[in-house]
């Protein structure tokens, strides 16, 4: 536990050692605000809810989460500190999990800082705060899924840029499949069962149902499983490199 927290704290502080943290937070807050009020038509809808805020999260995460996750392992690979980290008495899963949790906590911080939007909607009307809380939870779980994917791609390379690009592509695949036009286009040439499976793996599908205020355990399990799967894959890649 002590070791996990050591890895976690080092990684978390690492975000603030460079301007990356502040750039990320400013862009994240700027974009969530901008999307909510301009693209989402927050005021035009005349509804006291945060749908127009949350609906853009998958698309924001698509680019912003890879920016947070790309350094997780690629930077260790590049600078050689991976050799230091892996020869310290830390079980591999502790290192993988500690780093992931740090990145996740950082994204959570970004989400917490969007609280003014929540305050605004509460000032303007009487929103269903249960739904909003569920949406925050769903958004956080979804961010975890995206981050685990980035952790995996980051472990494959020593270049943060490559990690970023591959992460965006993978995250895009897990996102676009939930868009209704994808399902319509896919119906023409994919067997229905396969299409269902693909759509079922989409982050948007699962996030939408949470966003509607229904915290279905299956959706949370979905994000949890994706996260666990890709973290496991991260550990396998790192372990495989030791033997190669």
């Amino acid at each position: 536990m002590n070791r996990l927290s050591a890895v976690f704290l080092r990684e978390f502080k690492g975000y603030f050692a460079t301007p990356l943290a502040y750039v990320f937070l400013v862009i994240f807050l700027g974009l969530t605000g901008g999307f909510t009020f301009y693209l989402g038509g927050f005021f035009d809808q005349g509804q006291a809810d945060l749908r127009s805020f949350f609906v853009f999260h998958p698309w924001l995460y698509l680019f912003l989460i890879p920016a947070v996750g790309m350094r997780l392992w690629a930077e260790e690979n590049r600078s050689g500190t991976i050799e230091l980290l892996l020869t310290l008495p830390i079980p591999l899963w502790t290192a993988v999990l500690g780093k992931f949790l740090a990145a996740w906590a950082f994204v959570a911080l970004g989400l917490i800082l969007t609280a003014p939007i929540w305050a605004t909607v509460n000032y303007l009307g009487q929103p269903d705060n249960g739904v909003i809380l569920a949406s925050y939870l769903g958004s956080l779980m979804m961010a975890g899924g995206y981050l685990a994917i980035c952790s995996f791609t980051s472990s494959l390379t020593r270049s943060q840029v490559i990690a970023f690009v591959i992460s965006v592509v993978l995250c895009f695949l897990f996102t676009i499949t939930g868009v209704s036009s994808f399902a319509e286009a896919g119906r023409a040439f994919l067997p229905l069962a396969l299409l269902d499976t693909i759509v079922g793996l989409s982050f948007i599908q699962h996030f939408n149902s949470i966003m509607n205020g229904v915290i279905d355990l299956r959706d949370l399990v979905f994000f949890g499983s994706i996260t666990a799967l890709f973290l496991y894959a991260t550990a396998i890649v790192i372990d495989f490199k030791k033997g190669a």
Binding site: N2, R3, S5, A6, V7, L9, R10, K13, G14, A17, T18, S79, G80, T81, E83, L84, T87, L88, P89, I90
Partner: peptide, 26 residues
């Protein structure tokens, strides 16, 4: 172990780095 090239986390200070190592070392 001192690996080849003495890698260390570049964004940390030696003090922070050594404290991290101490914590990891239990």
């Amino acid at each position: 172990y001192l690996p080849e090239g003495a890698p260390a986390y570049p964004d940390m200070t030696p003090l922070g780095f050594l404290r991290f190592i101490a914590q990891v070392r239990g």
